[in-house]
Amino acid sequence: MQAKEEERPVDLLASGHRACAGCGAALTIQEILRATGANVFVANSTGCMEIISSQYPQSAWKVPWIHSLFENAAAVASGIEVALKALGRDEEGKVVVIAGDGGTVDIGMQAISGMLERGHDVCYICYDNEAYMNTGNQRSGSTPFDASTTTSPFGKKSFGNDRPKKNMPAIVAAHGIAYVATSSVGYPRDLTKKVQKAVSVSGPAYLQIHAPCNVGWGFDSAKTIEIARLAVETGLWMMYEIVDGELVNVMKVSRQQPVEEYLKQQRRFAHLFKMPGGEAQIKLIQDYANHNFETYKAASREATGEIQT
């Protein structure tokens, strides 16, 4: 049984949610739900998207939604999935996890691994805003190299976060699941296509969507999409799919932008342009971006993906 088409509300994340103006993550959720339609069960981990959408008695969700804790969304989703099976309701809809990067790559890691390994028919989507934004911009395992956050601040002896971003899609892919992909809120067509693919896979699928946070990263609220695109155009966020273990569809960038174009627009990297030694750090970031382009291109069976805006 399917909910009747005409009964489906267009915006499944209702207006009146309390996300900051220009929120990349809220836009990501809008786009995810537009792509999935109303027949989904959302398990949401603690984080920005949970807090801005669910202050009792006001819920922004127009799909069945559950929030339990920070690190257990994948397990809660597993529970929903098996319950639907057990109750003979598995045709009712797809189970989707929506979680931030902290809830995914750090504290939620164990539950995700369990969910993937057990093969639940769940689509896990991580909106990646690269730090603990709900609590005010503390560093997560997904924070990029040299980003200044409140717990990885720059200072006389620090250029900010001293570790590179954790490669979560590779870790997920190592579980041997059928579909892993990265996308970005800056590329709605790509995002929509990948969400639809991910939910159509039978078994676990994983999607990590780059979702800039103007408040935490420090840029004008109007530039969320622009910054998201720059991340891709500079090679600091790679867009690809891993289908049945094989890297495919690495998004081609016709004109690679220097990383400065991305970094200079954000307060979290502003120190690199002021501090002695900052230039060398920027060079390291550029090397990382170049390395990204080269390795993904080399590993990809067919680099046929095109930028679809």
Partner: peptide, 24 residues
């Protein structure tokens, strides 16, 4: 004084009563 349910369970799309336009 709408009665609260047993647990903090909400109805869909009820955030629409919050008129975020006045943040602008």
């Amino acid at each position: 004084y709408e009665k609260i349910p047993t647990a903090a369970i909400g109805k869909p799309g009820t955030s629409e009563v919050t008129e975020t336009g006045d943040w602008r």
